[in-house]
């Protein structure tokens, strides 16, 4: 309903990430912010969402009174299924992942390095949720997009020269979408592609702990 420019920063970044989902894709959306992309896809959009707990054709999140106790997505949300959905076991689910059947995954991150290294499973001594299916998604999806705030809760940059936290996977991230910018990982390092409304180039550079290549053309806004 609203114009994109009236979105709050979080909604804007999720809406921007939804544009990464192309018609016909098989897509896995990670736990947290990425699963909220579903709400930004047009009704009837032709895409197959994979939930690694054993579901393709994942639908919308359901309220508790509409939920089926046996039907969740990988984040534990009770969901509906689309016509044509399939259920399968964990072996089959990860054969789909490692066999290269996922066109795109969108994952959260604690840190991303300019080489594309991703850390999103452990902050030693503080929070260790575990790897879940993240390693295999990060290594084997054809395209890996990170959707995350640009800085952590303490205001520290998440985009770094090298990750300090234990890695989920090496050299796997293609693009990072944050509340401030869209940044691609290139063989030469981070390349700034787009800026969020109201964010300046200086803001992004100050919030990024690695060199940021600028495009020749004027920066797009989202």
């Amino acid at each position: 309903m609203s114009e994109p420019t009236s979105f709050d920063p979080k909604t804007r970044m999720i809406a921007r990430a939804a544009q990464e989902v192309q018609p016909g894709m098989v897509v896995n959306l990670g736990i947290g912010l990425p699963t909220q992309i579903v709400g930004h896809l047009p009704a009837g959009f032709p895409v197959c969402l994979h939930s690694e707990n054993g579901l393709t054709g994942t639908g919308l999140v359901l309220a508790p009174d509409q939920a089926d106790r046996n039907l969740i997505d990988a984040g534990g949300a009770y969901v509906s299924t689309l016509p044509g959905a399939a259920f399968f076991d964990s072996l089959t689910s990860f054969a789909m992942v490692r066999g290269g059947r996922l066109d795109l995954t969108v994952l959260g991150a604690f840190e991303v390095a300019q080489t594309g290294d991703l850390a999103n499973w452990q902050i030693p001594g503080r929070f260790t949720p575990g790897v879940g299916g993240g390693i295999e998604l990060a290594q084997k999806a054809r395209r890996v997009v990170v959707l995350s705030t640009h800085c952590d809760r303490r205001g520290q940059p998440k985009l770094l020269r090298a990750c300090k936290l234990p890695l989920t996977a090496e050299r796997c991230v293609d693009r990072i979408i944050t509340d401030m910018a869209v940044v691609d990982v290139t063989p030469a390092g981070f390349a700034l592609r787009e800026l969020a409304e109201g964010v300046s180039l200086e803001d992004v550079m100050a919030a990024t702990d690695a060199p940021l290549a600028l495009p020749d053309a004027p920066l797009l806004r989202f």
Partner: peptide
């Protein structure tokens, strides 16, 4: 003691 496995790796090790 917690030993973490990748999810598909856990399935495949069991397999």
């Amino acid at each position: 003691t917690v030993e973490f496995c990748g999810q598909g790796m856990l399935a495949e090790r069991l397999h």
